[in-house]
């Protein structure tokens, strides 16, 4: 893991976190709550992938990284479906 890739990972994580917080303060939730929910969960999913790959070193273990990606994607999709359920039912 090079220092440069860690700096890039940190900058990306900060940018994605600002994106999440900005979304929470926007008026999008009143008009398109499902779109906002998908955006917020997609940002969280990407942040978690960066932490696993760059901070925890799974970038050096691509097979393990794919496995963790699949589980993480499943968890995020399930949480998104549960969030959207009261909006669509």
């Amino acid at each position: 893991m090079t220092h440069r890739s860690l700096y890039i990972a940190w900058a990306l994580l900060v940018a994605l976190s600002f994106g999440s917080t900005a979304l929470s303060a926007s008026g999008i939730w009143a008009q398109w709550p499902i779109v906002a929910g998908v955006a917020v969960m997609a940002l969280a999913w990407q942040k978690a992938r960066i932490i696993l790959a760059d901070y925890m070193g799974l970038q050096r273990a691509p097979r393990w990284r794919r496995g963790f990606d699949v589980c993480l994607t499943g968890l995020c999709l399930l949480m998104l479906a549960l969030y959207a359920a009261p909006l669509v039912l």
Binding site: M1, T2, H3, L6, Y7, A9, W10, L13, V14, S17, F18, S20, T21, S24, A25, K47, I51, D54, Y55
Partner: peptide, 24 residues
Amino acid sequence: DRTAAGINTIVLITSGFLAALANA
């Protein structure tokens, strides 16, 4: 308080960065 939680997110990912840097 979403702002405080947002600040805490930045604090924690910066701390994680320092920990990863320490390891390297």
